[in-house]
Computed example of a mutant assay.
Amino acid sequence: MKSKRQSEIMRLLLLERTLKTEDLAHRLNVSVETIRRDINAMVSDKIVRKVYGGIELAPDSRRITEMAAWDARLAHCHAEKAKIAARALEYIPDGATIALDIGTTTYELSSLLGTKKDLTIITNSLRVATNMAQNTDHCVYCIGGQMTRVEIVAGGMAARDFLNNFAAIDYYLCSTDGITIENGMTEFDEAVVAVKRRLVEMSDQVISLIDHSKFGKKALFPTCSLQNLDLLITDAGIDPLYLKQLKSAKVNVVIAE
Rank of each mutant, 00 (worst) to 15 (best):
R160V: 08
R160P: 02
R160L: 11
R160Y: 05
D161I: 13
D161M: 15
D161N: 14
D161W: 08
D161L: 15
D161C: 11
D161F: 13
F162A: 11
F162M: 15
F162R: 01
L163A: 07
L163I: 07
L163Q: 04
L163H: 06
N164A: 13
N164T: 15
N164H: 13
N164S: 15
N164Q: 13
F166N: 10
F166M: 10
F166Q: 06
F166L: 10
A167D: 11
A167V: 10
A167L: 12
A167I: 08
A168H: 15
A168V: 12
A168Q: 15
I169L: 10
D170R: 13
D170K: 13
D170H: 11
Y171C: 01
Y171D: 03
Y171T: 02
Y171A: 01
Y171G: 00
Y171H: 09
Y172V: 03
Y172I: 02
Y172P: 05
L173Y: 03
C174M: 15
S175M: 01
S175T: 13
S175C: 07
S175K: 01
T176H: 03
T176V: 10
T176Y: 01
D177Y: 08
D177F: 02
D177W: 02
G178N: 03
I179P: 00
I179W: 00
I179K: 00
I179S: 00
I179T: 01
T180C: 06
T180K: 08
T180F: 09
I181F: 06
E182M: 02
E182R: 07
E182Q: 12
N183C: 08
N183L: 05
N183K: 12
G184M: 08
G184N: 07
G184V: 09
G184Q: 09
G184E: 09
M185H: 08
M185W: 01
T186S: 12
T186Y: 04
T186P: 05
T186W: 05
E187T: 04
E187G: 03
E187F: 06
E187D: 11
E187S: 03
E187V: 03
F188C: 10
D189L: 13
D189H: 11
D189V: 11
D189I: 12
E190I: 15
E190S: 12
A191D: 14
A191N: 13
A191C: 11
V192C: 04
V192Q: 09
V192K: 02
V192N: 03
V192W: 00
V192M: 04
V193F: 01
V193P: 02
V193I: 03
V193A: 01
A194W: 04
A194Y: 04
V195W: 04
K196V: 00
K196G: 05
K196M: 05
K196S: 10
K196Q: 11
K196E: 12
K196W: 00
K196A: 10
K196R: 04
